[in-house]
């Protein structure tokens, strides 16, 4: 079995089969429709939550940005007082937090796309629920119980597919916002405590971490030289 066929099987397993056991679907059509409206409400709340979380992360990122600028100012003040040791510390915190913040901005841009997709899916789902409402009225008016079972079966599972699709997209967006919140939190701690080897922001690869640290060290040296040049001192 290939990837798509496997994907189809997995996806279909998530589609609810709740209508299978119905004796006379005409009697439960209104109930099904009510359930769909409730689910649609849940989806709308879910989308709104993703939007709120994203805004919160954006605010956190803006705040972190300010703090990073503060480290730069502190480093300048330290240079003016000939305290290279303090300047170096301030600059390395600034640098480490800066790298992390860049990553967060990339993730935010990615979440933006995800959000647009969710809004689009929500509109589609809303149209499908509306289509179900129309179909249920036609079915109630025109068909016998046996005929209704055939007609409503496809409509109900077609809608169920739509719900499953948006459910998975929502889950993914929620997972992303959670990992971003954790990242923003880790950067916050990094900026405030200077814990440069904070495991929560480790790349998970010791060699990569070591290389990053080396690069940060080099940048700190360059930045210190720049600040000294700006303040009219010669680099040591």
């Amino acid at each position: 079995m290939g990837l798509m066929s496997r994907m189809s099987t997995i996806f279909k397993a998530k589609v609810s089969k709740s209508l299978d056991s119905m004796e006379d679907p005409r009697e439960t059509l209104d109930y099904s429709y009510q359930r769909q409206l409730e689910q649609l409400q849940q989806v709308r709340r879910g989308v709104a939550d993703v939007v709120t979380s994203k805004k919160r992360i954006e605010l956190q990122a803006a705040k972190l940005d300010e703090q990073i600028h503060q480290w730069e100012d502190d480093a300048k003040a330290a240079v003016a007082q000939n305290r290279d040791d303090l300047a170096r510390e301030a600059l390395s915190r600034k640098q480490a937090a800066n790298d992390q913040l860049e990553g967060l901005h990339t993730q935010l841009a990615d979440l933006e796309k995800e959000e647009a997709k969710l809004v689009d899916l929500e509109h589609k789902l809303s149209a499908k629920v509306d289509a179900f409402r129309t179909q249920k009225e036609v079915i109630k008016a025109k068909y016998s119980a046996a005929e209704a079972t055939v007609h409503i079966g496809e409509a109900a599972s077609g809608l169920s597919e739509e719900m499953a699709d948006i459910g998975l997209a929502m889950q993914r967006a929620q997972d992303k916002t959670e990992s971003m919140q954790a990242r923003a939190q880790a950067i916050d701690e990094l900026v405030n405590s200077g814990a440069l080897n904070d495991p929560t922001v480790s790349s998970g690869d010791a060699l990569r971490d070591e290389l990053n640290k080396m690069k940060t060290g080099k940048t700190v040296d360059d930045e210190l030289a720049r600040l000294k040049a700006e303040s009219g001192q010669t680099a040591s």
Partner: peptide, 21 residues
Amino acid sequence: AHELVNSDLVLPGADMTLRDA
């Protein structure tokens, strides 16, 4: 949008990474 039908085949979206797959 107003049509309710079952899918015969489901494809991952373009953004599914190899790792996710």
